[in-house]
Computed example of a mutant assay.
Amino acid sequence: MTTIELAQVLFTSALQPSDILTSDRVRTVIDDRLCACGGDTAVCAAYVAQEAGDHPDAFAARMRWALGAVTAAYPAYRLAA
């Protein structure tokens, strides 16, 4: 999976920037959310697109947060953008 795909999955989770973010927690949340989506990243991508249209002001900040959290949670495994 790419960094963007993982960030989209994290974006759709209930995890918030104000939560305590450890690499293990971020990876667990991504795994759990991906399972909830039936393993289909397109389901998460569709939700992200809907949120971008409905709340463009909040979308950018949350996606930046999700991208940063994914990058921090997977430092040894450099993901493709």
Results as ranks from 00 to 15, higher is better:
1 M>Y: 03
1 M>L: 04
2 T>I: 02
3 T>N: 08
3 T>V: 02
4 I>E: 10
4 I>S: 09
4 I>K: 11
5 E>H: 02
5 E>Y: 03
5 E>F: 02
8 Q>D: 09
8 Q>Y: 03
8 Q>C: 10
9 V>E: 04
9 V>L: 10
10 L>R: 06
10 L>Q: 06
11 F>P: 02
11 F>C: 06
12 T>C: 15
12 T>K: 06
13 S>V: 06
13 S>N: 04
16 Q>T: 14
17 P>L: 03
18 S>W: 03
19 D>K: 08
20 I>Q: 11
21 L>H: 12
22 T>G: 14
23 S>W: 08
23 S>T: 15
23 S>P: 11
24 D>G: 14
24 D>T: 14
24 D>M: 11
25 R>Y: 10
25 R>E: 12
26 V>D: 10
26 V>W: 08
26 V>L: 12
28 T>H: 12
29 V>N: 04
29 V>H: 02
29 V>S: 07
31 D>Y: 09
31 D>I: 06
32 D>N: 14
34 L>S: 01
34 L>D: 00
34 L>G: 01
35 C>Y: 09
35 C>M: 12
35 C>R: 15
36 A>C: 00
36 A>N: 03
39 G>I: 02
40 D>A: 10
41 T>V: 14
41 T>E: 11
42 A>G: 06
42 A>F: 05
42 A>E: 14
43 V>L: 05
44 C>L: 02
44 C>T: 12
47 Y>R: 13
49 A>M: 07
50 Q>D: 14
50 Q>M: 11
52 A>E: 14
52 A>T: 09
52 A>K: 15
52 A>N: 11
53 G>M: 05
53 G>L: 07
55 H>Q: 12
55 H>W: 05
57 D>I: 13
57 D>V: 13
57 D>S: 14
57 D>G: 08
58 A>K: 12
58 A>L: 13
59 F>V: 02
59 F>A: 05
59 F>N: 03
59 F>T: 09
60 A>H: 12
61 A>K: 08
61 A>G: 03
61 A>E: 15
63 M>V: 03
64 R>W: 04
64 R>K: 12
65 W>S: 04
65 W>C: 00
66 A>K: 01
67 L>M: 09
67 L>E: 02
69 A>Y: 08
70 V>P: 03
70 V>C: 02
71 T>M: 04
71 T>V: 10
72 A>R: 11
72 A>Q: 12
72 A>L: 09
73 A>N: 06
73 A>H: 11
74 Y>R: 12
75 P>E: 10
75 P>F: 07
75 P>Q: 09
76 A>V: 11
77 Y>S: 13
79 L>M: 14
80 A>K: 15
81 A>G: 10
